[in-house]
Design a protein around this nucleic acid. Structure first.
Lengths: 133, 133
DNA sequence: TTCGTTGCAAACATTTTGCAGTTTC
DNA sequence: GAAACTGCAAAATGTTTGCAACGAA
């Protein structure tokens, strides 16, 4: 049985930090963001709590970009654009997958589909420019 | 300017290995697969060549599953089902995204979309059973 | 007082890299 | 013979973990 959860100021701060940004940051970014405000915060705690949130479904992973796992405080169905140039991750509101499509994937594989992740890859507004060289 | 490519027996074997399986393996799997046949193969070479293939578009990454990057020898548009239980990765033939949808993502973000990755997550046929406990 | 939470640092696992020797052209 | 390729082992990187101190119920 899993342990009864207790309240924790740091945990709250980590979740709030993630929910207060749209940059889909990695653990390290959250850590650096909160460190000035909470000087006795450790990176391990950030990792531990992010893992916890993910388990509870409070946050989601966007996947690994340039070796770093990126997290998203939003959990409603939406997609992402990942810039191959600078690593920026942007929300994409359109293109929510239909239930029918998801059901088809389950039927085809014989498994049970519980979620999906749709990432577009390419070059963002800024990196698009800089590539014309 | 990038170096002129030379032929290499090991490189061929690595690509052939990846193309000859549908299990979307990580680097280590490819290494273990080829090692008996090519005793003087090193893991570093597998990593180096997989990175190279990815750059050239000969293979694609399915993303990181359980801490390991998984590769796919198929490059035609299709999706994947990732089992959260055992880590199996299966091809999903249906649900190819329309060009219109992809174009919309580009327009919405202001960037240029060069590709996408659609992963379904859930429990495969076998793991589905074992979860009824 | 109990038990979850945390800091710290060490441990871990995967991937990358430098260099000297080898293979390909 | 020049340049790319490779083995090997060390290094780098991101993440996890053990343990003693801390904080919440």
């Amino acid at each position: 049985m899993e342990p009864a959860r207790k309240h924790s100021r740091k945990r709250d701060a980590i979740l709030a930090c993630l929910r207060g940004t749209t940059c889909h940051p990695p653990a390290e970014w959250v850590y650096r963001q909160l460190k000035p405000e909470i000087p006795d915060l450790s990176l391990g705690t950030v990792y531990r709590n992010l893992a916890l949130f993910k388990e509870e479904g409070l946050i989601e992973s966007v996947g690994t970009v340039a070796g770093l796992e990126r997290f998203d405080g939003r959990t409603d169905p939406h997609c992402h654009f990942v810039c191959l140039g600078c690593g920026a991750v942007l929300d994409v509101e359109t293109a929510e997958l239909s239930d029918a499509l998801i059901a088809t994937a389950g039927r085809e594989t014989g498994g049970r589909v519980t979620g999906y992740r749709l990432n577009y890859y390419g070059y963002c507004k800024d990196c698009k420019k800089n590539k014309n060289s």
